[in-house]
Amino acid sequence: MKHTMLAVLLAVVMAPGLALAHSEARPGAPADGETLSAPPEVVRLNFGGPMRITVLKLVGPAGEVPLARTDGMQPVTTLEARPEGELGAGAYEIEWRGMGADGHIMEGTVDFQIEP
């Protein structure tokens, strides 16, 4: 019984610290759901803590667009990448996956449109 109570007490005390350990995705550029009048020169992802991004893809109407990354796969709070191909009008999706400083895997997508 004492061990159970101690375990519950430790869980309650440590829970806020564990929640803060996770890196969270924050709005970047382009923003999710944004409609652009011109192609972006750079795509930017922002995080609440250091993230090592292991997968970064930009997919559009003509398929995957290569991205030139500047982070060298190092942990970052802001990741920027330049599209190396031409971005025409249509729907695009940035797909990312990474690992936070606490070792937890996170992933997400950002959808945007480029007007004709």
Rank of each mutant, 00 (worst) to 15 (best):
80 E>D: 05
67 L>G: 08
75 P>C: 15
76 V>T: 12
94 I>L: 14
98 G>V: 13
103 G>A: 08
77 T>A: 08
96 W>R: 00
68 A>W: 08
80 E>G: 01
72 G>N: 08
94 I>V: 02
84 E>F: 06
92 Y>F: 13
93 E>R: 14
73 M>Q: 15
79 L>T: 02
98 G>P: 11
81 A>K: 02
101 A>F: 10
97 R>H: 09
91 A>Y: 05
65 V>R: 01
98 G>Q: 01
72 G>I: 08
100 G>V: 07
92 Y>T: 07
74 Q>Y: 12
82 R>C: 02
81 A>F: 00
66 P>T: 09
76 V>I: 12
82 R>K: 04
90 G>M: 00
99 M>H: 04
82 R>G: 04
68 A>G: 13
71 D>Q: 11
65 V>E: 00
103 G>M: 01
77 T>Y: 06
83 P>V: 03
83 P>C: 10
90 G>F: 05
95 E>V: 15
90 G>V: 07
99 M>K: 07
76 V>N: 09
93 E>Y: 03
95 E>L: 15
101 A>R: 12
75 P>M: 13
90 G>T: 12
75 P>D: 14
94 I>T: 01
68 A>F: 12
89 A>F: 06
78 T>Q: 09
93 E>S: 09
78 T>H: 04
99 M>D: 05
64 E>Q: 11
100 G>M: 13
77 T>H: 03
65 V>Q: 00
89 A>R: 10
94 I>R: 04
92 Y>C: 06
86 E>P: 07
77 T>L: 12
62 A>W: 03
70 T>M: 07
89 A>L: 05
92 Y>A: 02
73 M>G: 06
95 E>T: 15
101 A>E: 10
74 Q>D: 10
89 A>M: 07
100 G>K: 02
80 E>P: 01
75 P>V: 15
86 E>H: 07
67 L>Q: 14
88 G>V: 11
74 Q>L: 15
93 E>K: 11
100 G>W: 02
97 R>S: 13
81 A>Q: 00
77 T>V: 14
82 R>V: 08
69 R>Q: 12
88 G>L: 12
85 G>Q: 03
87 L>P: 05
85 G>E: 05
82 R>H: 01
72 G>K: 09
102 D>S: 06
86 E>T: 10
101 A>C: 05
68 A>S: 15
92 Y>S: 13
88 G>C: 06
